[in-house]
Amino acid sequence: MIIELHLLQSFPVSNLNRDDVGQPKTATFGGQLRGRISSQSLKRSARLLFQRHGLEAGETGVRTKRLVASTAALLEERGRTHTEAVGVAQSALVALGLGLDKRRPALTEYLLFVGNDAVSLLADYCERDWSPLAADAAARARAAEKKKADSSKDDLTEDKKSKVKPDKATLEEAARILDASRVVDVALFGRMIADNKDFNVNAASQVAHAISTHAVVNEYDYYTAVDDLQPSDESGADMIGTVDFNAACYYRYANLHLDQLSHNLRGDTDLMARATRAWLDAFIDAVPSGKQNSMAALTPPETLLVVVRDSGAWNLANAFLKPVSDSDLMVASSRALLGHFNRIRRFYGDDGIRAVVAASVTAELDGLAEGELAPSRHELVSRVLAATKA
């Protein structure tokens, strides 16, 4: 079973998701430049809301390269010295088959998506195997000193030595520390661990890049700032700069494969139900944080369409292949979205669709049956969740 979420959300002056030169991200679609918000930005914004929408801290995860520092800090609280704790934490990760950053060994080689209890579990492992891990840490420290003294040493050879193949018992320990069967955001968005594919998790949710329903042109704000303590006989600004922005109505799409979510959460029906509600509510509320302190573009979605289906998936972005040009962008975009959905439904049929629920703050939702319209966000969410239990 699949839940599809289609949202229309208009943001005023904003720079929610910047590119490498600080401008709002864009994409060319239908031959026209559109505003864009990356799926990664939207997923992070939703993840940060999961606890607000009913999940416990222990049921959510963290994406980090800083397991060494966090684990070492916990070991220090347990009475270990800082140097010992850092070295043993590094050796523990290497023993578990996880590489360290070559240039900054205080970091892992790549971001790890783990449960919030991974740090305490890793610290417990360090304590249980302290002696061999401490010996390895000392050997690694000596090797590092030797490498500094021998500038001709082959970096590639050193890389190969920095990774080990764990034995069966150590792999079982790694599986316990990296277990994500109760970590909802890992279950939803998946995980790839290059060093051991056994710890990979297939994502239950797919999230599209949001694109504007109309053509956009990025603009910039020229600003000045005056020193409050500037003498009265002086004039002029003490800071001058520019900030890029645009204003756009975005189409957002995400889906949730409930069978995959159930598999990832090992069939825990209670956790799955709460995860499904948290996913739906969090994606409705998700707003990227870019430049919000200076622009406060905190507008909610105004048109919401949710489809519950047994199989298949329809991203409705092609409703906006021809850019909307009406002066009332939200109303025109809503009309285009619903019209496109109804045309596809007529053409392909709706035998696999269990429920359609739509709601809008401002637009008339033409073409939908009366029973498919919800008067509020609360009613929409309730109907969708009820449909998943049918």
Rank of each mutant, 00 (worst) to 15 (best):
G79N: 02
T81K: 03
H82M: 08
H82K: 11
T83V: 15
T83A: 15
V86I: 13
G87P: 01
G87S: 01
G87T: 03
G87V: 00
V88P: 00
V88G: 03
A89V: 06
A89W: 04
S91I: 10
S91Q: 13
A92K: 00
A92C: 03
L93M: 02
L93R: 00
A95I: 02
L96I: 04
L96D: 01
L96Y: 00
L98K: 02
L98A: 10
L98F: 13
L98D: 02
G99W: 04
L100I: 08
L100D: 00
R104G: 09
R104Y: 11
R104E: 15
P105Y: 06
P105D: 03
P105H: 02
A106F: 07
A106M: 11
A106V: 14
L107Y: 08
L107E: 12
E109K: 12
E109P: 10
L111W: 07
L111R: 02
L112E: 01
V114S: 05
G115W: 06
N116V: 12
N116E: 11
D117P: 09
D117H: 14
A118C: 09
A118L: 08
A118W: 03
V119Y: 02
L121M: 13
L121N: 07
L122G: 00
L122K: 01
D124V: 14
Y125E: 01
C126P: 04
C126G: 07
R128I: 15
D129H: 12
D129R: 09
D129P: 03
D129E: 13
W130E: 04
W130A: 07
L133D: 08
A134V: 07
A134C: 10
A135T: 08
D136A: 15
A138T: 12
A138H: 09
A139C: 03
R140D: 02
R140G: 06
R142T: 14
R142H: 12
A143H: 05
E145K: 13
E145T: 10
E145C: 11
K147Y: 12
K148W: 06
K148Y: 04
K148E: 10
A149K: 10
D150P: 06
S151R: 12
S151I: 13
S151G: 12
S152K: 06
K153C: 09
D154P: 03
D155Q: 10
D155V: 15
L156I: 14
L156V: 13
T157V: 14
K161Y: 07
S162F: 07
K163V: 13
K163I: 13
K163W: 11
P166G: 02
D167L: 05
K168C: 12
A169Q: 04
